[in-house]
């Protein structure tokens, strides 16, 4: 935004579905617990209501802030960030150094689009692995004397993810088979887990 033009308006950031979705997720859980608490005996409901009602209200406020894009998250970042240059540090105040430390932590969490895409792929893969294992366990009789499909599906899941990141076939099979063999020996043979 040009500071010289007072009429210029800063483009409002678009609604982030992920952010609003997470607010809703928290609100649904807290709201459900609060509503359920009203049907409990007073002694059992007292503390959950003391915590839950303000939490639900705070979440509604959070949701409104995120839907209408107001609040600290949507203010422009201050132009001057303390760069960890030695001259700056020698003259920086405690507050500035604390800000620099926090900025460093935030910097670690920043993602570029490629990283974001890879993260989504990994999340989908993880969810797929667990859901498929559970569904197979429910509907297909397990094999090899196992009680669940977690181990066999893990082999398939490893092959899929390693091939997706373009690991050579022989390495993919070696890593997947090695991992499953180690886990079988460790959990089933040594620790006698009913896997």
């Amino acid at each position: 935004m040009n500071a010289a033009d007072p009429n210029a308006t800063r483009p409002r950031p678009r609604i982030e579905p992920g952010r609003v979705g997470f607010d809703l997720f928290l609100l649904v859980i807290v709201g459900t617990l609060v509503l359920t608490a009203f049907s409990l005996r007073p002694a059992a409901a007292l503390v959950p209501l003391i915590i839950g009602v303000p939490a639900a209200l705070a979440l509604i406020v959070r949701l409104v802030l995120d839907v209408f894009r107001v609040g600290r998250d949507y203010r422009p970042e201050p132009a001057e960030e303390l760069d960890l240059d030695a001259d700056d540090v020698a003259h920086a105040s405690v507050a500035e150094l604390t800000r620099a430390a926090r900025a460093e932590i935030e910097e670690e969490n920043k993602l570029d689009p490629t990283e974001s895409g890879k993260q989504r792929l990994f999340i989908l893969w993880g969810v797929g692995y667990v859901v498929l294992s559970a569904l197979m366990t429910l509907f297909v009789p397990p094999v090899l004397g196992l009680r669940t499909w977690f181990l066999p599906v893990a082999f398939a899941a490893m092959v899929v993810i390693l091939r997706l990141i373009r690991i050579a076939w022989w390495k993919t099979l070696a890593i997947s088979a090695g991992l499953i063999a180690v886990m079988y020996l460790l959990l089933v043979v040594f620790l006698q887990v009913r896997l």
Binding site: F122, G126, Y129, A157, M158, L179, M183, L195
Partner: peptide, 14 residues
Amino acid sequence: APVIAVVTLLSVYA
């Protein structure tokens, strides 16, 4: 990461 994920999920189940 996928190796650790599989090990972790299996251990949590175990």
